[in-house]
Design a protein around this nucleic acid. Structure first.
Length: 571
DNA sequence: GCCGTTTTCGGCCCGACTGTTTTCAGTCG
């Protein structure tokens, strides 16, 4: 939380300095600091507490000045220099710059000439024809800005990973129909598996770029064409999502794939390394003078610099280059490593399918075991049920296991953690279950300390095995409840409770960063779908990609184990 | 503002597309 707050502040400082046309490299420095702070896997408050200002300066991109600002924020809750900077512009002036097509230069120009300080005033001024007399403004530019304002009204922010994935798949399918695209690869944050996606980046290898461009802007899912050039086009899809397509030749495929996958800081770092070697890296390849010496494959983008291959999910400037230099890139978990799903609902509570239907669907995926986990009585909205009904369900689970050959079906429950930290079924009921998942479904607004203690108390119950969707967030809908994740992870370790990575694209919780920390602490993890129907079992891949972003290997995730080993690990 | 087995000062990634420019600035990724 604190990391994100500070990252946002430093990004805002960068934007404000850009409005002031301050030194471009100073602006970059703030952006870099912001991104590095955002991707820290430790709470910045903890870093400061344990190592003081020196520890802050050890964060890459954070120097003496930024460290002082962080210290000020940690101690006082504000940064004076930032507030002063904000006061140089009207309230919410940055909203103007957020409009696609508007940049700092245009925003300042229009503010000085016409006093425009909000998207609303901007829209009015354009429609009243007031921009006509401003040098550098023309009909096309007005049209672009209006379109940007409309887009901003309709699309609020980023898209969920599954939504972006399905749209990318659709575009790939359409482009495949052309016979001139030799390779099509979705890149960008989608390929890195980020929890939300801003736009779709597609890379195409073709010797007929013009035909690819024409086909791309002509796809029926395309609503609007933002730009169409010889090798690069940008469009807006019907759902408001932007998609960018770039065509390169085969010899540049690796360099282009690397470049379009990002992240930005990762790319810049590699380009800087190239400079130091006297080389140049661009999306076209690795060059010595004008001669291409690498970049046809993505592997070369790393091997030429003496690095191990860095999988896309790790390219977030979280130490991947240091690890790759030492040959310490982890052997990341893959979907095929998953042997079971330990969080499933059935028609007994709020699911859509029966125990046997879920079991058969899971078996078809090649898994070896499942855990049935319907809701406990407190979660009335989800049809949570009584202890008596749970005892009945245990019998149904045992019966189902006899009816569906080739898969182990375990009896469990997603048990509510009540506000006082006690569990929603008594121990004598819990002990009859094979495994118990614990969850927070109520009193989300508790203060952090109280919530943290509530969860830790629940973990101390000897029947608690897995803590599901640990922050309770719903991406784009609801913030997670306030918890001290560090303490919760410590408690998970002490009480041998596994932390869940919930694979639902709205949850993806634990997050990647928390996964990294959990692994460091030796906390056990599981990846579950929380499926409420058989088709949701497919969501496992999003949990796996989140685990990969958290540097997890199969051995870190219990449901890659055989059932025997899994049960031994949790008891 | 950050950073350093070529530097504590002098650098700081690289390129595509658009619009209105008369040779390029602004924006974007």
């Amino acid at each position: 939380m604190l990391n994100q707050e500070l990252a946002d502040i430093f990004l805002n400082i960068a934007e404000l300095l850009e409005l002031k046309a301050d030194n471009l490299f100073k602006i970059r420095a703030y952006e870099k600091a912001a991104r590095n702070i955002e991707s820290l896997n430790h709470d910045i408050g903890e870093i400061y507490k344990s190592g003081g200002i020196k520890a802050l300066e050890n964060i890459p991109g954070v120097g003496a000045h930024t460290a002082l600002k962080i210290e000020e924020y940690l101690n006082t809750g504000k940064i004076k220099a930032f507030n002063a900077l904000k006061h140089e512009f009207p309230n919410n002036f940055l909203k103007l710059v957020e409009i696609p097509g508007m940049g700092p230069k245009t925003a300042i120009l229009l503010y000085k000439k016409l006093g425009i300080d909000s998207p609303e005033k901007l829209e009015k001024a354009i429609k009243a024809g007031k921009l006509k007399d401003i040098p550098g403004m023309g009909a096309k530019k007005e049209e672009n800005i209006l379109r940007g304002i409309e887009l901003k009204k309709k699309v609020h922010g980023r898209f969920l990973l599954d939504v972006a994935t399905s749209h990318a798949e659709l575009l790939v399918e359409e482009l495949s129909k052309l016979k001139v695209a030799d390779k099509i690869l979705p890149c960008g944050s989608l390929r890195r598996g980020k929890e939300t996606i801003g736009d779709i980046d597609l890379l195409v290898v073709s010797s007929h770029p013009a035909r690819v461009m024409d086909a791309f802007v002509g796809i029926s899912a395309v609503k609007d064409v933002l730009a169409k050039g010889e090798t690069k086009s940008s469009v807006i899809l019907q759902n408001g999502m932007q998609a960018d397509l770039r065509v390169v030749e085969e010899k540049s495929f690796g360099a282009a794939a690397h470049y379009f996958t990002g992240c930005k800081e990762h790319n810049i770092h590699l380009r800087q390394l190239a400079q130091q070697t006297g080389w140049k890296v661009s999306e076209y390849g690795i060059f010595r003078k004008d001669k291409q010496i690498g970049g046809e494959t993505e592997e070369e983008m790393f091997s030429k610099f003496g690095f191990q291959f860095i999988p896309p999910e790790l390219r977030e400037m979280r130490g991947e280059f240091e690890a790759a230099a030492k040959g310490k890139i982890p052997d990341l978990i893959e979907l095929k490593d998953i042997k079971g799903d330990l969080h499933l609902h059935t028609t007994a509570s709020d699911g859509a399918n029966t125990i046997e239907e879920m079991a058969r669907a899971v078996k078809a995926l090649g898994y070896e075991y499942i855990l049935i986990t319907d809701h406990s009585p407190s979660t009335r909205v989800a049809k949570g049920f009584s202890a008596a009904k749970l005892l009945q369900q245990i019998k149904e689970v045992r019966a189902a296991e006899k009816n569906v050959a080739g898969i182990r079906i375990l009896a469990g429950s997603e048990v509510d953690i009540k506000p006082d930290g006690s569990l929603d079924y008594p121990d004598e009921i819990l002990k009859q279950l094979d495994l118990v998942i614990i969850a927070v479904h109520s009193s989300f607004k508790m203060p952090e300390e109280k919530m943290t203690n509530r969860i830790i108390k629940a973990m101390q119950n000897k029947y608690a095995n897995i803590f599901t969707h640990p922050t309770g967030r719903l991406i784009g809908e609801r913030e997670g409840y306030a918890i001290d994740m560090e303490k919760v992870l410590q408690a998970a370790k002490e009480n041998n409770v596994a932390m869940e990575i919930n694979a639902h694209p709205k949850r993806l919780d634990l997050t990647d960063v928390h996964c990294m920390r959990a692994k460091e602490l030796g906390v056990k993890l599981v990846i579950n779908t929380d499926a409420h129907s058989t088709d949701q079992l497919q969501l496992m891949k999003y949990g796996v990609i989140t685990a990969r972003r958290g540097w997890l290997e199969a051995k870190d995730v219990l449901n890659t184990y055989s059932l025997t080993r899994l049960l031994q690990s949790l008891k």
